[in-house]
Design a protein around this nucleic acid. Structure first.
Lengths: 164, 164
DNA sequence: TTTGAAAAAAAAGCTGG
DNA sequence: CCAGCTTTTTTTTCAAA
C-alpha cells in the first residue's frame, strides 16, 4: 500500500458515511456496511482501500473493556513550558516520546500542554511523572489522578468530528 | 455472542500477548498474530473469540488520521461539581451523555471531572460547553482549547496498561 | 487447551456497464 | 458508482493429541 504523494487526498461524503458506519458497527464487515448505507460492496471495498492507501485509515484497534484490566492507573498532567510558544512544540514532541503518555495536547491558557497518562501501577506512574518533570523545557507540571473512568469512548472521539 | 455470567472472566497472559500483538499490528489478522507470537492460528482464533464473547473486546475501530479532518475542534474541560463527592458520580453520568464529550474522568484535586471534547466546529463546541455549564450539579467549569494535537494514540492508551 | 488440516466465508481483484 | 464473476486470503470448524 503505497501513498500517493502528488495528489492530495480529500475525504468525501461517502467516505464519511462509510467511516461512521464502521464506527457504529465496531467492525469493518463489507456486507454489513454495504447493507447499512445501501452502497454496493465493491464501492465500499474500493473506498476503504483508498482510505487505507492514503493513510486516512491507519489500521484497526480492538476496543478493550478497561474493567477487566485490574489496577490500571490513569492520570492527567497540566504542563507549563519554560520558553515561549515558539519552543513549545519541541517540548511537546519530547513529551510525546515518554512511554505511558498516550496523548499530548498543545493548549491555550495558563498551561501549554495537557497530557494523558496510562500506567500499570503506581510505581510506573511515578516513573512517568519523574521523566515528565525532568523533560527539557518543562517549567512546572501538575498531575491529577483519575479515580474513575466514567466514559472513554474512542469511537465517539472520531464520530463527533465526522458526522453532520 | 452471549456473555457468560456464572463464571467471572479473567484475562490470561496469552490473552495479553495476543492483545498486544493486535495493538502492534493494528489489525487482527490471524496469520500475522499467529506468526508473531508463535501460537497456532486456531488458538489465536479461539482466544480472540473468547475475549469477544466475554466482552473484553467490544469490537474494532479504525484509526483515523485526524489531519484529514479539516476544522475539527478539540477541547478539554475541568469541572467542579456542586455537591460532595457522593453526588459526583451522578454528575459524571450526566456529562457522559452530552454529545461531543467522548471521555469523562472523575479526578482528585480541586476539580471533580476532566472531560474531553471533540466537535466539528466552533458553533458545536459552543453548544457543548453551554450544555455542560447547564448540567445539573456543575458548579463551575473551565474549558481549554486545544491548538494542536501532538499525539493521540488510542492503541498506546491500551498498550501501557497491558504490557509488562 | 492447543493443534493442523479441511471447509466455509469473506475480501480482493477484474471487467463491463 | 455498480453488479457479477473469479481468485485469493482469512476465518471458522473439528477431530485428535
Amino acid at each position: 500500500m503505497k501513498k500517493k504523494d502528488n495528489k492530495k487526498f480529500e475525504i468525501s461524503e461517502l467516505d464519511k458515511k462509510i467511516l461512521t458506519s464502521v464506527l457504529d458497527l465496531k467492525e469493518s464487515n463489507l456486507n454489513l456496511i454495504s447493507k447499512k448505507i445501501k452502497i454496493s460492496k465493491s464501492t465500499v471495498h474500493n473506498r476503504i482501500k483508498r482510505m487505507k492507501v492514503n493513510k486516512l485509515i491507519d489500521g484497526f484497534i480492538p476496543i478493550i473493556n478497561i474493567n477487566f484490566i485490574q489496577d490500571q492507573i490513569t492520570a492527567i498532567s497540566l504542563i507549563k513550558a519554560k520558553y515561549g510558544p515558539e519552543y513549545a512544540e519541541d517540548v511537546g514532541k519530547r513529551l510525546a516520546k515518554i512511554q505511558g503518555i498516550w496523548a499530548v495536547y498543545f493548549v491555550l491558557g495558563s498551561n501549554d500542554f495537557i497530557v494523558l497518562i496510562r500506567a500499570k501501577n503506581k510505581i510506573e506512574l511515578e516513573n512517568i511523572v519523574n521523566e515528565l518533570t525532568k523533560t527539557e523545557g518543562v517549567e512546572r507540571s501538575e498531575t491529577i489522578m483519575v479515580i474513575k473512568i466514567l466514559k472513554e469512548d474512542f469511537s465517539d472521539a472520531y464520530k463527533f468530528m465526522i458526522n453532520d
